[in-house]
Amino acid sequence: MKDRLKWILGILVAAFLLLTPFLFSDFINYLVATLLINMLFATATWAIFHQAGQALFAIAVIGGISGYISAMLNETISNNWVTMAIGVAASCGVGMFFYVVAARVRGHIQFATVNLAFIFVFRYFLVAFTNVTKGIDGIKVKYFTPESFFSTIPHRYWVVLLITVGSLALIYWIMKSRFGKIITLIGRNTDLAASVGINTRKYLIYSYLIFPPFIGLAGVLYSHFLGFISPDTWNPDLSLIMIFCSLIGGSTMFVGPIVGAIIATGIPLYFDVTAEFRFGIVGILAILIFVFKPEGVAGLLGRLFHSTAPKIERKGAAG
């Protein structure tokens, strides 16, 4: 019965995502695509932050650098898929840079401060090199290639859907693999992992090489989907909201950041709050959930699902 419910739920979600371009307006398509990109941001953040235990939360910097590199290369390379790949590859470099800093800096607070500094300085960096980045005016980015085909939102929506679902499946597979289990152990207790003979340094390097590209991918997807990139997109709020997504959804399970991204994107829309207070509502919700229900919304739903499923089965058997 539980499996059947899971399948029904899965089919409903898949049907909604596949039929969105046919059933809803461009605005809804845009919102769902943004939600999908946020899911990718949040899940990649969850993997490096909550599972690998690395206080890397300069999400806006990693996503922004990838997005900007792809956008700037667009002026010389006409094929966007190539520029996007270069942008994603660049996020490996950014990840390695943060690994070197993390390996050298002692303590979470120090590393968190470095992250904070980068989050805030990124905007100034973009403004300082206006001749390349176009400063606060931003860069008009070409849509996915061929541009004539992807000029409509529904067509771009398919790209976002395909890449996001593929990436989420890949992250899921990574986390279920031996590597994922080792990295989770390192995140929970580095000393214990080292004591059983795991080369923690090697695995941490891999995690800094593997997860930031997913954040970079979300960054390039967002900029090419929107057709525009500016410093305002990569503001400090983004980094924190992605961490809050895991806290809202539940940081111990894969679906946690996905559920969290739905709530973090949906609640401000539902309550029709202005952009400044969007962050406040999400933040307060995340902290309340974390303090009072650390398992998150996904954990609560899971518990509800497990407690109702046997009842349904029993009722079915009795009937």
Binding site: A55, G107, H108, I109, A112, L116, P236, D237, L240, I243, F244, T274, E276, F277, F279, G280, G283, I284, A286, I287, F290, V291
Partner: peptide, 28 residues
């Protein structure tokens, strides 16, 4: 926030998020 995780480095990290959130909320 600090005490909810029994203090230590993990507690401090969550104080950072909570107060970072406030820091970004204050301008509004």
């Amino acid at each position: 926030l600090f005490n909810s995780l029994g203090g230590g480095d993990r507690g401090r990290i969550f104080v950072i998020y909570g107060t970072f959130g406030l820091c970004l909320l204050f301008p509004a």
